[in-house]
Design a protein around this nucleic acid. Sequence first.
DNA 1: GAAATTTCCGATTTGACTTATAGGAATACT
DNA 2: AGTATTCCTATAAGTCAAATCGGAAATTTC
Lengths: 150, 150
Amino acid sequence: MKITRKGEYAMRALVDLAQNYRKGLRQIQDIVREEEIPGKFLEQILIILKNAGLLQSKRGIGGGYSLNRPPDKISIGEVIRLIDGPLAPLGCVSSGHASCSKEITCGIRSVMVDVENATAEILDRVTLADICNRTKGMAERRAEYQMYYI
Amino acid sequence: MKITRKGEYAMRALVDLAQNYRKGLRQIQDIVREEEIPGKFLEQILIILKNAGLLQSKRGIGGGYSLNRPPDKISIGEVIRLIDGPLAPLGCVSSGHASCSKEITCGIRSVMVDVENATAEILDRVTLADICNRTKGMAERRAEYQMYYI
DNA sequence: GAAATTTCCGATTTGACTTATAGGAATACT
DNA sequence: AGTATTCCTATAAGTCAAATCGGAAATTTC
């Protein structure tokens, strides 16, 4: 599995929206300014997220985006699968893929299934809310360090 | 982390060589025939593996390749890192990468570090010998199933 | 209802990288 | 000498991610 820039942008945007949950609608340009993501590219991404039911949107003046579920109900795994596809590092692992000539007896494949499961175990458990907390915790610890340094 | 075709070919070739460990040298064409890998492409891959010390080679008539270490001393992780690069699913996770603007406080990054560690945990532990055993075990179980089916 | 703002949509371009091929040089055996 | 094999470099071809462009549809404001 590879997380593309698209997937990274999606996560960053969602974390941004999670940090602003219940503060009304947030416009693309707000996110662009904060996260330094190409606007037109982000546009496409947000539409995907919206069509998948993760976001809610409104057009026109005063419009924008907001999370359609609480931040603790959206996992990173869900996002990455939506944007970048299956978590498996090898194509033949994903179901419905029949290219592997010796699929049934392929030992390599079975290892990659293990990797996929281990990855899913993590990414399906971590939510946007967790990311916010981690980020916050890190910022605080960093502030402490700065204190000592002075 | 994404495993490219190149990486997959490398693993397949190495497993092939592991299955023929201590049976003398094996030529590119032997592997090509068995594994259905483009010959000239495989050539480049084997050279990389050789230069990294995984393989031993000999030119001319009767030449070929063989593992330079026992199959249980070569891990899949070592191979993938060599061919396809770092195991992290996100660029900013790999050491020496300074592009992430908010690197220190980036919660996403810390999750990806977890994924990288979990992946490495598996891939660095599984060796070519393990793959051979898994493949063998699967083939046997498959044979049993065939028996019942008749 | 006209104008302004914002999301929505599709096509297209650009660039980088993976995949593969081509041609020959170096080496080793018979 | 001749043949078989690995080794090396260049380059073509194909694929896909990343980004841009231009405009359509919806919503609010005046």
